[in-house]
């Protein structure tokens, strides 16, 4: 097909003019969801990792179970269950709530694993030095262990935050009007592929800087190490 047709199919100016506000709305919602998920999932995951470092076997069993479950289950399964199943059992959650809840739990599982790996990487002498100066468990964790552990976990935490934000696109399946949903409904109203291009560009606008930034940060780290 000709270059001309290609452009009018994927970059039709009239379509861009008509649909960009919808895409912007979608971006706002995606950003809102991302913040809500990262705050809740991040805090929950961090708390679980801290609890795990207390090393109570019975509680740790459940933390590991929780983390394994949410790491092994495709997120679409709980999304469908909560959105379509719960109302029949008498509890109706909005699509936004379902998406936020599910992805927060998924993120919490990954954050717990990343933080726990960071905590475990700290030599036991750090715990001993702090405890023998009279600091309690929580103080030691806050002032000595976590500052070091989180620095170690930072690369995987940022990767997980990016990954979970991308997963907000799953909201399109249950009609959360985030970017992808806005783009594909605009595409079906208009019968043009241009809204899809706009949607893809919106994602690139959000994630490309993050991906390039993390690559840059990694190469700087590697260079320092080498």
């Amino acid at each position: 097909m000709s270059i001309d047709r290609f452009f009018t199919t994927f970059f039709d100016p009239a379509m861009i003019a008509r649909y960009w506000p919808m895409i912007i709305e979608g971006m706002a919602l995606t950003a809102l969801l991302a913040v809500a998920i990262i705050v809740c999932g991040g805090v929950l995951g961090l708390l679980l990792a801290c609890l795990r470092s207390r090393r109570w076997p019975a509680i740790n069993f459940f933390i590991v179970l929780f983390a394994d479950f949410w790491r092994a289950l495709p997120p679409l399964v709980p999304i469908l269950l909560l959105y379509f199943g719960l109302p029949n059992a008498g509890l109706e959650l909005s699509a936004f709530t379902v998406l936020w809840l599910t992805l927060s739990l998924v993120l919490a599982a990954f954050v717990e694993e990343a933080c726990w790996a960071g905590i475990r990487a700290i030599r036991p002498g750090q715990w001993e030095a702090a405890r023998s100066s009279g600091m309690g468990f929580v103080q030691t964790l806050c002032w000595v262990i976590l500052p070091q552990a989180l620095r170690i976990a930072l690369p995987s935490l940022t990767n997980r935050a990016i990954a979970i934000t991308k997963m907000t696109a799953l909201g399109t399946v249950i009609g959360v009007p985030e970017i992808l949903n806005q783009a594909s409904s605009a595409q079906s109203f208009s019968g043009s592929a241009t809204p899809l291009t706009l949607g893809a560009l919106a994602y690139l606008a959000i994630f490309l800087p993050l991906v390039v930034l993390s690559r840059w940060a990694e190469s700087r780290l590697a260079w320092k190490r080498g």
């Binding site: 002498g125 702090a130 009279g134 500052p147 070091q148």
Partner: peptide, 20 residues
């Protein structure tokens, strides 16, 4: 024990300074 430990200093073979 935390109250008691503040009155007992400890110095380790590996120093165990807080690197951060």
């Amino acid at each position: 024990i935390d109250r008691v430990r503040r009155q007992i200093g400890m110095v380790f073979q590996q120093f165990n300074l807080y690197p951060h």
